[in-house]
Design a protein around this nucleic acid. Structure first.
Lengths: 216, 216
DNA sequence: TAGATTGTTAATCGATTAACAATC
DNA sequence: TAGATTGTTAATCGATTAACAATC
C-alpha cells in the first residue's frame, strides 16, 4: 500500500466530497466561501476544513476565505480529474454493466477502453458504447493498450488470480467490487474495495438498534 | 442520527466483515479460532478483534479462543440477518436494476418487496422477479405493505423530496446511491450513503501519488 | 498443573476541535 | 484602519495497540 505522501486516509476520503460541493457552488455562481460557511453546508467543522486543505497548500486568504473556482480547480488537480488513466472493466454481469453505464469515468481521470467477460454469450455485444471482449484477449489487449486501472466485477473465486495476472500486465490500480477482500502485497499497487453487501449490513445494524429503541 | 447504543461507527463498519470471514471459516469446517489467527487472516490486530467483540459480549473462552459457529451466529444476530425488514427500491435505471438483481437482500435481513420508477416505459416490466410499479402507486403501496427500508437509486434532484415523502410513509432506513448527500434531520432515521464516484476518486488520487512516486 | 488465550485496563497514537496570532 | 478569516499551534477526544491478570 502506498504511503500517500503522508496524507491520512481520512482526509483522502473527504476530498471527493469537497470537490463535489465546490462544483455545486460553482454552478450557483458563488465566487468565494469561508471555511465556516462551507462547514455549515457539508456538516463538518470549519477547523477540519482548514486543516484538511492545508495538507495540500494555503488555498485561502485571510479575511476573505477561499475562491470557489480556484479551490475547485486545485482539488480537481489533486484528485487527478484531468488524467486519462486507461481503464478496463472485468465482468459484464449485472453490476459490471451498471457501472460501465452509470459511472462517469472520464470526469474522474479514467478512460474506460475495454470490457471483458468469460461468457462467450456476451462477447461481441456492445456495452456503454464499446465491445465486450473475451477474457482470452486480455493479455494481447493489455500489451497493446497498457491499461493501468481495472474495475473488478468478477466472481469471488477468480478475483485473486485475475489481479495477479493483471498486475503482471501492468495494471496497478484496482477498483474492486468482487466479494473477495483485496489486500495487495505489491508495493506499486493501490486498491479500493467496495463491498455493497457490507454497506447494507451496517444499515440493517443501525435499523436494529433503532427498532429496539422504539420498542422500549 | 441514532446513537447506536454507544458502539462506534468504526466498529460497526467492521462487523459485516467479521461476519463474512467467519462464514468462510464455517464453510471450511473450522471449529475454533483465536483472535491472533483471525487477525492474521483479516489483516487486523488481535487486540482490535478482542476489543471489537467485547463491545457486544464475551464470546470467547480463555485458553481456547472463539467457537466459529457460535461467533458467526452471534454476529449475525447483532447485524440482524434473521430480520425481514420490508424493503423497496426506487429508480430502476442501470444501477437500480443491478442492485435489485445482484444484492442478496434476504441474507442481510431485508425483504425486497417493491420496485418503483417514474418512467412509464418501465412500469409493469419485471425485475428481479417482481413488477416495477409507477411512483404514483408509492403511497398506497406503503400504506398497505409498510416498508421500513428504501434503496435510493434516484436522480440527485429528486432524492431529498422522495426521502421526505417516504419518511412520512413510515420508511426509516435509507440506503442512498443517489449523488445527493443525505443527512437526515429526523431522530428516528438511519442513513447509509454510498457514493461510487467518490470511491473511484479516492482510487485515482492514490494512483496519482503512485505515478508521481515512480516518476522521481 | 502448565499452556494458551481471553477480557480488560492502561499506554499510545492519530484525528478532530479549539484557540489565536498573522494578515488580507 | 477595523473586521474578517485564514494558517497553524496547542488541547482534546477517540480509536488502536500493548500489557497482563484472570481463567479455561
Amino acid at each position: 500500500m502506498s504511503k500517500n505522501h503522508g496524507i491520512s486516509e481520512a482526509v483522502i476520503k473527504r476530498l471527493p466530497r469537497y470537490y463535489r460541493f465546490l462544483g455545486e457552488l460553482l454552478k450557483q455562481n458563488i465566487e468565494r466561501i469561508s471555511s465556516r460557511s462551507l462547514a455549515g453546508k457539508m456538516k463538518l467543522t470549519a477547523s477540519q476544513i482548514r486543516q484538511d486543505l492545508n495538507c495540500f497548500g494555503g488555498f485561502g486568504q485571510q479575511g476573505y476565505g477561499y475562491n470557489v473556482s480556484e479551490l475547485h480547480r486545485e482539488i480537481g488537480k489533486i484528485l487527478g480529474v484531468d488524467k486519462m488513466f486507461p481503464t478496463i472493466l472485468l465482468g459484464a454481469g449485472n453490476l459490471g454493466k451498471a457501472i460501465a453505464a452509470s459511472i462517469n469515468f472520464s470526469a474522474r481521470g479514467c478512460n474506460l477502453i475495454g470490457i471483458f467477460d468469460i461468457d462467450r454469450e456476451l462477447t461481441g455485444k456492445v456495452l456503454a458504447g464499446m465491445n465486450i471482449y473475451h477474457t482470452d484477449e486480455l493479455e494481447s489487449f493489455c500489451k497493446q493498450y497498457k491499461p493501468t486501472v481495472a474495475v473488478l466485477c468478477t466472481p469471488k473465486a477468480t478475483t485473486q488470480a485475475t489481479v495477479e495476472q493483471l498486475h503482471n500486465f501492468g495494471v496497478t490500480a484496482f477498483w474492486n467490487f468482487s466479494h473477495y477482500d483485496l489486500t495487495p502485497d505489491y508495493d506499486n499497487a493501490v486498491v479500493e474495495n467496495v463491498h455493497l453487501g457490507d454497506s447494507l449490513q451496517t444499515l440493517t445494524y443501525k435499523m436494529n438498534v433503532l427498532s429496539e429503541k422504539e420498542n422500549i
